[in-house]
Each structure stands twice: as structure tokens, then as C-alpha cells.
């Protein structure tokens, strides 16, 4: 049911002329994809520094909330570029990505990372001040930072695996893949 809805939507999206132009364009697609990948250095680069600070592994003599507040800005700029290029890349090849098990895992992990980030910032705001000059952040924030590192690592892995065709629907797939991405819908 859900697979059918998603597939119908993807097919409609993929039938748009601009979607087909995009997937057929060598340079445009590659530039957007490269921008998506290279912006990891801005988005995750900044995020990793924040997380490492919370874990007491870098910039320990700089107040933790200062590191967070300052690096948030470039991080959000990077995130905005990544999410925009990500949507465009999905728009260029919607049917294939909709039926990709890796893409689906990636979306779930992105949501999890988003919730973790929200909880992290809430806890950071609630605790502000008292521990700022400590090398280590309070336990809750340390767990959030470690989770953030782990979840984003998994997001990278899923993103990379999307380029592999092992579980593509144009090959015969087992029951799990058929159930999870709906290869058998016609």
C-alpha cells in the first residue's frame, strides 16, 4: 500500500521533463552530485568538531557552547546545501531511489539524526553555563554527540551504498527486499 503510493508518486515525479533532463545531463548531474558530496566537508566537518568538543577531544580550552554556537552557522549553511542538492538528486532519479533499500535506510537514519540533534540542542540549552569550561560535556550531551557521530557515519555509508546495484529491482530479489521496497508492484 505505502510502497504503491510511493512508487506512483516517484513515477509521476520521474515523468516530469526537467527530471528526465537532469538524469540525462552528464555535467549538470555530476556537478550537483559533487556539490552534495563535497559539502560534507562543511556540514559534517563542522558537526564533527562540535561533537569532538563535547567529548573532550578537541578545543577543550574553548567554552563548549561557544564552539557550538559559532560552528552552527557554517554547519547550517552546509546542511542547507546538502539537503537542497539531495532533493534535486532524488528528483533526477525518483523511481530508482524510491526502490533503493539503501535510500530508505538513509532517510530513516536522517530522521533519527535529526531527532538526536533536536534533543541535543534542547539539552545543551537547558544546561547552559555551568560546565562550559570543562573539557567534558555532561553525560547526556556526550551521549548525544557520540550518537551524532555514529548516526552520520551510517548516513554516509548508506549514501555510498546507494551507488551499488546489488538490491536493485531489475534483478530478482528475495522476499525481504520485495517487502521493504516493493519491487514486485506492477
Amino acid at each position: 500500500m505505502i510502497n504503491e503510493l510511493l512508487l506512483n508518486f516517484a513515477e509521476w515525479l520521474g515523468s516530469q521533463p526537467s527530471s528526465q533532463n537532469l538524469i540525462g545531463s552528464f555535467y549538470m548531474w555530476n556537478w550537483i552530485e559533487s556539490t552534495h558530496v563535497l559539502t560534507l566537508m562543511v556540514f559534517l566537518g563542522m558537526l564533527f568538531v562540535i561533537d569532538l568538543r563535547m567529548l573532550g577531544l578537541t578545543l577543550t580550552n574553548v567554552p563548549a557552547t561557544k564552539v557550538n554556537d559559532r560552528l552552527n552557522i557554517p554547519m547550517i549553511i552546509g546542511f542547507a546545501i546538502m539537503i537542497t542538492t539531495g532533493f534535486i538528486l532524488y528528483y533526477a532519479n525518483p523511481v530508482h531511489e524510491t526502490q533503493s533499500i539503501w535510500f530508505r535506510f538513509k532517510v530513516v537514519l536522517l530522521v533519527a539524526a535529526g531527532i538526536n540533534a533536536w534533543l541535543f540542542h534542547r539539552a545543551l540549552k537547558a544546561s547552559s553555563g555551568s560546565w562550559d569550561m570543562d573539557a567534558l560535556a555532561p553525560k547526556r550531551l556526550r551521549i548525544g554527540a557520540a550518537l551524532s557521530l555514529g548516526l552520520w557515519t551510517l548516513v554516509i555509508i548508506m549514501g555510498r551504498l546507494m551507488a551499488y546495484d546489488w538490491f536493485d529491482c531489475d534483478k530478482p530479489q528475495g522476499a525481504f527486499i520485495n517487502w521493504a521496497v516493493g519491487c514486485n508492484i506492477q
Binding site: 560534507l40 556540514f43 555509508i157 555510498r160
Partner: peptide, 20 residues
């Protein structure tokens, strides 16, 4: 694929430290 992912992960870290 795992090596590629680790490569990308460290690219993010390297880029982050360079930008910082």
C-alpha cells in the same frame, strides 16, 4: 564500499579541520 565510506568520513573531518 566500507572503505569508500571511511574515505568520505575522513574527508569530512579533514575538510572540517582545514576550514576551521
Amino acid at each position: 564500499a566500507m572503505f569508500q565510506s571511511a574515505h568520505l568520513f575522513s574527508m569530512a573531518l579533514l575538510g572540517g579541520t582545514v576550514l576551521l
